[in-house]
Design a protein around this nucleic acid. Structure first.
Lengths: 207, 207
DNA sequence: CAATACCAAGCAAGCGCTTGGTTTGTAAAC
DNA sequence: GTTTACAAACCAAGCGCTTGCTTGGTATTG
């Protein structure tokens, strides 16, 4: 399963919008605008202009502006959960699984879905409470992928801190790369992955 | 130099507003509101109501709403830079200095100045470019404190990754605690500091 | 008696969203 | 293979409300 086929499978199940459809293009532009200017500073007129329609026509596709924000977040989580799952499945050892997760999350934050991931981090409070609860449930699935791997490492004596603390620190550290990492800065995502794993100082397995 | 005397010195030099003055109280309330609802969602009427005056009266103290956001950020950085400097100076070894910095930053994020620190992280884009540039210069001083310590550790062979990468990861990891850490959750800031330092897996000095 | 701090009222602009009507794509009916 | 039918997609206009900020005047304080 490569990235493209994972995306296609989700589109087929109607869990993610086809990027070439009107809805898909709007969500992509919305993610970019929300990241660049913030949700509140982005007007429905901005969103409409970005896809070349009138502001009123937006409401043919979405009932409210907030629904657009929610859709950006929901679809992003769905896609990345599937990508993460594939990354974990493809790795052999727990250490490799962790490295694969770090690499995949860095990719999701700084690659194709980067705009949407930044929105997920920085525009959280602009979601209504009901939407927050919904997105949170999706996020839990995603987080469990991490915790399973970290707990295995902890159990093997390779991890010096509590898995849930480690995961939260990693969430912050990796999310934050969106504010400073630039692929043309002489540091590849592989380099970065290596540095992160090195920094964590995993010990040799007791087993 | 304890924390109170550091604050008093800054107030005396007019670098930070007296927390008991009208301006100081407004900035404190503004930080709280900006963190809770975001800068854009917080209206000047909200701000005025929080200190018990009319919205128009705000503009006697600040020329624009953005100036309030800028003041929150500037004063917070000034205070925390001074606190950090004191923490570093008080520690002996480089390892202890790092631990002191981690502890101090966790304190600043989750303690008294927590609201303002969260604003600094999440409301950055709401600042005008001119203000961003100004705040960035102040931040550089603060960051250099960290880099000096991390470079010393690296030089001693205790650090497995590049200092500037480590600092950026730490910035993200520690900032992120504001979204999940609760002091009443059975984990003290000391515990957390310990876990962070443990997670980094500092090696024994070569010296 | 001047400066500082505030109030009451409201303006101009921009906001999300609605409305009534027109175009466009598609596919069956003839 | 043209006509008819109809929904989806869109436009032009603008409504009602909120926003940051201004104005002219009044207390309060040293």
């Amino acid at each position: 399963m490569n990235q493209d086929s994972i995306l296609r499978a989700l589109v087929a199940d109607n869990l993610v919008s086809d990027p070439t459809s009107a809805r898909g293009r709007l969500l992509h532009e919305a993610a970019r605008l929300f990241r660049d200017k913030g949700y509140e500073r982005t007007t429905v007129r901005d969103l409409a202009a970005a896809v070349g329609i009138q502001s009123g026509s937006l409401f043919h596709h979405f009932r409210t502006k907030e629904e657009i924000l929610k859709a950006v977040m929901v679809e992003t989580i769905r896609l990345n959960t599937a990508l993460m799952q594939a990354a974990v499945d493809a790795a052999e050892t727990d250490r490799d699984k962790l490295q694969a997760l770090v690499r995949a999350e860095l990719e999701s934050i700084n690659g194709q879905t980067g705009e949407a991931m930044a929105v997920l981090v920085f525009e959280w409070r602009s979601l209504s409470e009901a939407s927050q609860a919904y997105v949170l449930r999706l996020r839990d699935i995603y987080e469990q992928l991490w915790l399973d791997v970290l707990e295995a490492l902890r159990h093997a004596g390779m991890l010096a801190a509590e898995p849930f603390v480690v995961r939260r620190m990693l969430t912050g550290a990796l999310s934050w790369t969106v504010t400073w990492y630039r692929p043309d800065g002489g540091l590849t995502l592989d380099d970065l992955t290596e540095q992160v794993v090195a920094m964590m100082g995993l010990k040799a397995s007791r087993a």
